[in-house]
Simulated scan of single mutants.
Amino acid sequence: MEDVLLCECCVQVGHCPITDKEMKFSYMWRKIHGELCERSGLPCTKMALASRWKILNKNLGK
């Protein structure tokens, strides 16, 4: 469930809606972290989310 929510948050905030360009890494993960914490209410760190996303992204690319 948390993996699905993480993927949804990454897709939702991964690109700037104004310029349609990718955001800087640190800013993107700050926004993803905020969105995920707001939607799930679960405590987590930005680094933990980024690490989990790296694993998911690798597996989803196969």
Rank of each mutant, 00 (worst) to 15 (best):
T45F: 02
D3E: 10
S26L: 10
W53T: 05
R52L: 00
N57I: 02
L60V: 00
V4E: 14
S26N: 11
T19N: 07
M28A: 14
S26G: 07
G61M: 04
V11M: 12
I32E: 06
L5Y: 05
W53C: 03
S51E: 04
C16N: 13
S40I: 04
G34T: 12
E35I: 10
G61Y: 12
V13F: 04
Q12C: 12
P43G: 00
L6A: 00
R30G: 00
E22R: 15
A48K: 11
A48V: 00
A50M: 15
L60R: 03
R39A: 07
S51P: 02
A50K: 15
R39C: 02
L36W: 14
T19P: 11
I18E: 13
L36G: 08
C16T: 05
W53M: 10
K31C: 15
R39G: 03
P17H: 15
M1S: 09
K58Y: 01
K31D: 15
G41I: 11
T45D: 09
N57Q: 07
E38Q: 14
N59T: 05
L49S: 06
T45V: 04
V13C: 06
P17R: 00
K58Q: 01
C9M: 12
V4Q: 09
A48D: 09
I18W: 12
I55N: 00
N57V: 01
D20L: 13
S26M: 10
K58C: 01
S51A: 10
Y27P: 03
C9N: 07
H15Y: 15
L6K: 05
E35V: 13
L56D: 06
W29S: 12
C9K: 08
C9S: 13
L5K: 15
C7G: 09
H33P: 10
K54E: 08
L49D: 02
W53V: 08
H15A: 12
M28I: 00
N59D: 09
V11D: 08
L56F: 04
E35H: 14
E8W: 05
C44D: 09
L5S: 04
A48C: 05
S26P: 05
G34R: 12
G61V: 02
V4W: 13
A48G: 01
R30K: 13
R39D: 07
E22D: 14
G14W: 11
H33L: 06
L49Y: 02
E8G: 00
D3A: 11
A48T: 08
W29D: 05
V13D: 06
F25T: 13
E35G: 05
E35N: 11
R52T: 03
R30Y: 07
R52F: 00
N57S: 12
G61I: 03
H15R: 15
K24F: 06
F25A: 14
L5T: 09
A50Y: 08
K58I: 02
F25I: 13
V11K: 12
R30C: 10
R30Q: 14
V11A: 09
L5R: 08
C7A: 07
I18C: 14
V13I: 05
G61T: 02
R52Y: 08
E8Y: 09
I32A: 01
K46Q: 09
I55A: 10
R52A: 03
N59I: 01
L42N: 08
R30V: 08
S40L: 10
L56K: 03
V11S: 13
